[in-house]
Design a binder for these strands. Structure first.
Lengths: 339, 339
DNA sequence: CTGAAAGCGCTTACAG
DNA sequence: CTGAAAGCGCTTACAG
């Protein structure tokens, strides 16, 4: 029913071997026969069969992305960078996604099926030792996106530095009672952002009290959601002594926090400053100050790392770590740097 | 190197045929041999080879989603509904995406490769007659998401009704100088929303002037972006006679509009009301009134339609059209319904 | 219930 | 430059 290599071989008067060669850009085919085969293929509307091809070649032209929470806006932007870079490459992208982190093992299992893909990109999932083992013995090229492990290539933002930048900024702007909306304590990126923030603060001898560290109760997207920011901020506002600057570990939490602030009628940034993390496109439109991650570069870079790893299995493990940058908008006070 | 059906056949002492049968849940295998084969497979860490399987079966367990603009938040939420529904189904999802609509033909070409997938979901792309032809003669199951064509199954929201709902609402709240932020005129959903809005208005003899229809100059995401809303609103604010209610054809445009409004210091909703479309999760946090589309249901429903079509090729074409709903928040005036 | 064999649609040494 | 043949790892009538 569908057109195979046999049909076009017959029509063009050559063997299937040479037909195959022209579709593989093998130079050992005369120009004349190439043309004739190509035109026969064109007429018949031939398309190579993907599965047959990968079976014979013992390799596929698809790669997998394992993304725990697909609708997370941060991932959406990273994915865009990735897709743009994949562009005209021959590779196709298989996306494995689950509602929450619990299912990552299951996704991995599916993604690692033999012959399924040439390599996998694992998006910010905390990895159990078991996961690490499985990945290693699968023998597949792996790159970690937005997370880190010394045995795999990875690409991410320096979250510790990002947290410290947020701290530096609010210190400089005169804050003395900082607080943080910290997402899920199990989230590695959130933890690092908090750690960097806290460390810098303590170096400057500014106290970050326990009551001023609000973890998310709402676990959707690992606490990186609007509701958790909203709830956390409400709780902060109920304190006897309100904070004067709050660092949200993601923009999306900051957005929720902003709503709580608005409802309570507090003046931002005069009474309370707010700074987020990520720099989603919406941040600009709500005037949110934030620590920017280069999301498109992360996506594009992940693809490049994976390609490199597919090319050569035994290159040393590589880590790309981007520096975040500070974006000042309306939720923080600008200040004069005193030298 | 990797474990095949031959290895486990040898180890268990059966032929590859019976090994294959147990992995296909063929009931014509005795319980005893099933157990022994399964344990041999377990020990060896056997996994079926995806390509070999689809080649032999003449069908794959992957489906394709063609999404012109992957990082669009609306699509992200639809995709989540889809992935949740795919859940434990054996299917995997291939995602084809391009920066803009121009490349849809190219994506289609890749997605339609023989043996690549069992069916395709095409997300809101305007279809040329050529595309329609190609889809039809590919013989593949196709479902249209967020768009419509009478020859293919589809699932979408009734955009005309949605536009009319927005009109009804602002009419009831007393607006007399409506305006619309209309995205790209080539976008079918945007066009329908505008059409529904305009029609209802004219039925009520309320004038929608040409100057008050602002198409996007910024074409990213077909005009469904913050910048286009921002620019459009600025233009509206420069008019001698400002509008008193504006309908944005997407929430993301409304977000940009809100920024322009805030910068100009206009009182929302007292001076100008604003209503969006979609009900993205952020809408709730910026207090945006909007016309809601059931995004998760659209995603889940798309999967169901595709499965149904894969099962039986010659069922009549089915269209699922959801009714949108009105979500009142802070950017519109509430009013008493006078009977 | 089980096996031998053909076939799915390609690729790729090996010869010539 | 071109072809015959083996092989990639499965599935599935056909026999028994």
């Amino acid at each position: 029913m569908s057109i195979t290599i046999y049909d076009i071989a017959e029509k063009a008067g050559f063997s299937i071997a040479t037909v195959s060669r022209v579709f593989n850009d093998n130079p050992r085919v005369s120009e004349a026969t190439r043309t004739s085969i190509l035109s026969a293929a064109e007429e018949l509307g031939y398309q190579p069969h993907a599965s047959a091809r990968s079976l014979a070649r013992r390799q596929t032209e698809t790669i997998s992305a394992i993304i725990p929470m697909i609708s997370n806006y941060f991932f959406a932007e990273v994915l865009k960078g990735l897709q743009d870079r994949m562009g005209k490459s021959p590779y196709d992208l298989l996306v494995f996604s689950a509602p929450d982190l619990e299912d990552v093992e299951g996704l991995l299992f599916k993604a690692l099926h033999r012959g399924r893909s040439a390599g996998v990109m694992l998006f910010s999932a905390p990895m159990s030792e078991e996961t690490v083992q499985r990945l290693q013995k699968s023998g597949q090229p792996v790159v970690l996106v937005d997370s880190f492990h010394n045995r795999f290539d990875s690409i991410s933002t320096n979250n510790l530095v990002g947290g410290a930048m947020a701290a530096d900024f609010i210190i400089a702007s005169g804050a003395t009672r900082p607080a943080v909306l910290a997402a899920n304590p199990n989230s590695v990126p959130a933890r690092d952002r908090l750690a960097g923030f806290r460390k810098r603060l303590s170096e400057e001898r500014i106290e970050l009290t326990v009551e001023n560290i609000l973890y998310s109760k709402q676990q959707v997207f690992d606490g990186f959601n609007e509701q958790s920011g909203y709830d956390g901020m409400k709780e902060l506002l109920a304190h006897d002594q309100r904070p004067d600057a709050v660092f949200a570990t993601s923009d999306i939490q900051a957005l929720g926090a902003l709503k709580a602030l608005r409802e309570a009628g507090v003046d931002v940034p005069a009474e309370i400053q707010l700074i987020g993390f990520d720099d989603l496109s919406i941040a600009r439109y709500v005037g949110l100050s934030t620590i920017r991650q280069p999301m498109h570069e992360i996506g594009a870079g992940a693809f490049d790392l994976l390609m490199a790893r597919i090319e050569s299995r035994n290159t040393p493990v590589a880590h790309t770590i981007y520096a975040p940058s500070l974006i000042e908008r309306q939720t923080t006070r600008t200040f004069e740097l005193v030298l």
